[in-house]
Design a protein around this nucleic acid. Structure first.
Lengths: 176, 176
DNA sequence: CGAAATAAGTCAATATGACTGACATAAATA
DNA sequence: TATTTATGTCAGTCATATTGACTTATTTCG
């Protein structure tokens, strides 16, 4: 098989280096590919498990976020996933009908449907996240704490939305 | 809007700390979400551009890898993308018919179709990658070189395949 | 109070990207 | 020559997403 790596690195890159501390184009392009390959492999194992249930990646995302944020509303889930209500509804409806998620009305606002995993929902979440947790934990262990910190910093910088970045801030002080 | 962040961090995590230097469960779960949010935002801008052409994310991936590895074969592209020949062919066929990619027979092996971007293919590639390069470069600049190094280390650790990891190794010494 | 806005759900039509399976052609290789 | 390999293609299916229109229940605002 031809060696795909065999090419000019940094070929005519930085012909006009920008004023403000240019980041090497090759380094940036490798970043793009690292994200692609990591995400591809990161989702491959859960995808195989989902198949057994007749579910897809969308179900995984719903189960993940509901698991992490019990009592979240449908609207919050829509904000996070950035999909339409109709798209979510098919997936969420299946999970509810098959007993992985329960909905109940909000106490203050009775229009809201608060979402929560059932026991089998938690089992499913655990099975799905297991390979991902293992993969990340192994990589974290191998790379070491400073690298993990850099990983987090760079990914946070890539995330566009302030609201979403805030999810990863240390817990606010006065929040017993 | 309810504060989704308001929850127990590290709740009953590490009840049985493993022998081999456990990585905090909360840290790992945040890693999962960081990847999700970063990938979501990383693909949003190119997706909007692709819409203008009537293309999807699959076209982006093909244009990206052919751009980076001129003269690559269809088989190599299949290996990288991990999709079926039939899936690739629809997308690749459109790109060829619309003049973004040219194919020509391999010199040694005439069964192969070597892929290459045309001038408009390179333009398309550039338009699509521009927001991604900008996003990564900005994040790299802000996070600094050691963080970038950690980012790369951790992502490399997440990538499953040896073959794919090798793409990111420094160019082998004796390879003038 | 009553009108407007909001949260959620639904129906219908459509597109994209992926899959499996079967098969065809040309070229290289054993 | 027979087999394997690289590529392409036909047909059918499925999951995920879209837009647009509309309903119901509930909250909020003038």
């Amino acid at each position: 098989m031809t060696d795909i790596n065999n090419q000019d690195r940094e070929a005519d890159a930085e012909a006009q280096p920008s004023r403000k501390e240019a980041v090497g184009d090759e380094l940036v392009r490798q970043g793009i590919e690292l994200l692609f390959f990591a995400y591809r492999d990161f989702t491959a194992e859960p995808d195989a498990i989902l198949d057994q249930y007749g579910f897809g990646r969308a179900h995984h995302r719903v189960v993940h976020f509901v698991g992490r944020h019990p009592q979240m509303t449908v609207g919050e889930l829509l904000d996070i996933l950035r999909i339409t209500k109709q798209s979510l509804n098919r997936v969420l409806g299946q999970l509810v009908r098959q007993g992985f998620i329960v909905q109940h009305r909000g106490a203050q606002d009775r229009r809201q449907r608060l979402l929560e995993l059932t026991t089998s929902g938690r089992e499913l979440e655990h099975r799905l996240s297991e390979p991902q947790r293992a993969r990340i934990a192994a990589s974290y262990r191998k790379a070491g704490a400073p690298a993990v910190d850099g990983f987090r910093k760079v990914l946070l910088g890539i995330i566009a939305d302030d609201e979403d970045r805030r999810r990863f801030e240390p817990a606010p002080p006065g929040q017993r």
